[in-house]
Amino acid sequence: MSTWQALAADPCEVGESPFWHPNEQMLYWVDIPSKKIFRSNVFMGTVESWAMVAPHDLEPGCIAPARGGGLVIALRDGIYRARRWGGPLEKLAAALHNTKTSRFNDGKCDTLGRFWAGTIYEPRDAREAALYCLDRRDDGHAPVLARMAGGATVGNGLAWSADGRTLYWADTTAHVVHAWDWNASTNTLSRQRVFRQFPLKPPGWQPGQPGYGGRPDGAAVDSQGNYWVAMFEGRRVLKLSPAGEVLSEIATPVQCPTMVCFGGDDLQTLYLTTARHGRPAAELEAMPQSGGVFSMRVDVPGLPVNFFAG
């Protein structure tokens, strides 16, 4: 396994939702607090940014590519469709959550083209976050946004197993990743269980101190069914087996990795977004690449990104 390489991009406050676009051969990601979407031709070293402007100057929690071109974008107040890069936004569905206290966070599409997005409850003092699914595959009817799961505070780590039978979803605050049996055709979840519980942050722990391995943030699954998860504040990415066992640990050059995805022609490049927002000055001085985007070659290919149908 190789070492991390930094992309030629300005640091994000909170980089998230990376995906590799196989048709464009480009890497996409968002900076949530800065209300921007980015894409990069990693071969040329070029980076483009797209600011969310009025009347849609809201935080993009997550994005996914769409069939026919463009993106589906989860903003604070709803889910939108852009037919082209930088183009106008069409609102597909209004948010079902209270937008004063919650916003969309981590999300992506399933294999049948439905868009899933979890929320974050910003006061972080109650389990008000939920996981939603938007289905727009029937052009004759309005898109349907449905609540699929709940009981979280910060929804993260959404992914599906390689065989498409298991859905993973994390609650970052609770340091837990849950798993469900998932029926793709009926789009139903059952048999919720703990996939991996991580130790909570020790009382009084401060960044730079030992004794804390971080909490689960964004994730991706490889072709062997392993679950790769960025451990926020833990300075590491973990590779977990389908049974939830730690197979390997990859140190990161920053304290707060946020999400991984697989890319490149062979899907054997692991991309990583990171955060710097609200981090202590001493940490940023010691880790000046915080907020950057990184890549590393890995031995096992990932799964290709799923496209939104609609």
Rank of each mutant, 00 (worst) to 15 (best):
M1T: 14
L7W: 05
A9Y: 06
D10N: 08
P11V: 12
P11M: 06
E13T: 04
E13R: 03
G15W: 12
F19G: 02
W20N: 04
Y28R: 01
V30G: 07
I32P: 03
S34Y: 00
K35E: 12
R39D: 07
F43R: 14
M44E: 14
V47G: 06
A51Y: 05
M52V: 05
M52W: 06
V53N: 04
V53A: 05
H56Q: 04
P60D: 12
I63G: 01
A64T: 10
A64V: 15
G69S: 12
V72S: 09
I73Y: 05
A74D: 05
A74H: 10
L75C: 05
L75T: 06
I79L: 09
R81F: 03
R83Y: 00
G86H: 12
G87I: 06
L92N: 02
L92E: 13
A93L: 05
A94Y: 00
A95R: 09
A95N: 09
L96Q: 15
R103L: 00
N105L: 09
D106C: 12
G107W: 06
G107I: 01
K108N: 04
C109I: 12
T111E: 11
L112T: 14
A117I: 06
A117H: 00
R127G: 00
E128F: 07
A129M: 07
L134H: 11
D138R: 13
A142P: 05
P143C: 04
G150R: 08
G157P: 04
G157H: 07
W160Y: 08
A170G: 08
T172Q: 15
T173V: 15
T173E: 15
N187Q: 12
S190N: 13
R191T: 10
R191I: 07
Q192Y: 08
Q197Y: 13
W205E: 02
P210N: 08
P216G: 10
D217F: 13
G218C: 00
A219R: 09
D222M: 00
D222Y: 04
Y227N: 05
Y227T: 13
V229W: 07
M231N: 02
E233R: 15
E233A: 15
S241Q: 10
A243S: 14
L247N: 04
P253Q: 00
V254D: 09
C256T: 03
T258P: 06
F262K: 02
G263K: 07
Q268H: 11
L272C: 05
T273M: 09
A275W: 01
G278K: 13
A281M: 10
L284F: 06
A286L: 11
M287D: 14
Q289V: 08
G291M: 10
G291H: 10
G291N: 10
V293H: 04
S295C: 12
R297P: 07
V298C: 03
V298R: 06
V298L: 03
V300I: 15
G302L: 09
G302K: 09
P304K: 15
P304A: 13
V305P: 00
G310L: 11
